[in-house]
Amino acid sequence: MSDAVKSGQATHYVMAPKRSFRPRLTLALDTLGAWTLAIVWIAPLLFAVWAAFHSTSDAVNFNLAGAWTLDNFRTAWDGAPWLRYFFNTFLLVTVVLAGQLVVTTLAGYAFAQFQFPGRDVLFIIVLLQLFILPEVLIVENYVMVSRLGMFDTVFGIGTPYWASAFGIFLMRQAFKSVPKELDEAARIEGCSWFGVLWRVYVPSAKPTYLAYALVSVSTHWNNFLWPLIVTNSETTRPLTVGLSLFGAPESGVNISVISAATIMSIAPLLIAFLLFQRQFVQAFLRAGIK
């Protein structure tokens, strides 16, 4: 099928040289549009990186010839207990993910492979939580966490996210696709329900676990409002909250130093993303499309 066969207005282009002109023009326009948007989209980040390595006066004057420096990073690093914040965030995402994996695996398994009365109603109740956002319930969750004695602890920040409806849903889908025969074979071999879960279901859902883990870690690495509310000390505060305090206008830090602190705190996740981009995108996709 060549372009010349196109009916309608295409018959005007029967002459040979013009045939490939239109597709090439569209491609050129597409490229122009895509590149422009891509540059606009990435520019703020690139600019922040550039500013972080230059003195404030060079940065605000766009002095492209200005000398590169690490001074901003030094100033930023000395301005707040970053190592502690990094450790807190690391601990937080670990605690959240570990809890989520246990809770959602058990619940997903129950919903996928166990028949019992009330199961479908329960499933709908669980799905409701997709819309009762933890972010909206900050006031009463704060009361609850305080009552449980978990205020200003990593568990105070983490436990409300353990029973993630979204995770339960994902695990249920993954476990549902495991062939029944495998399950039965394992049972005949004498596996307990836990043995079946551990030896048959969990290994077969590995891609889902990976996807869920990536989404969970990047969500909680970036989470801000809830940690802001339930922490009030250096020993539990995660990076995002630390960064917001550091960058507060009241503290009078200049823009290059703020950029340095920002780049510093997003660097681990950003580098991981750039290295494993395909996996990240696949993970978000798998997690999003049900």
Binding site: W35, I42, F273
Partner: peptide, 25 residues
């Protein structure tokens, strides 16, 4: 590949970091 990366990268930044970056703008 570059175009895709450029589009997707803001997604993985914390909102706080995004705000700091835009503050400069």
């Amino acid at each position: 590949g570059f175009v895709r990366t450029a589009f997707f990268t803001p997604t993985i930044l914390p909102m706080i970091a995004a705000a700091n970056i835009w503050l400069f703008f």
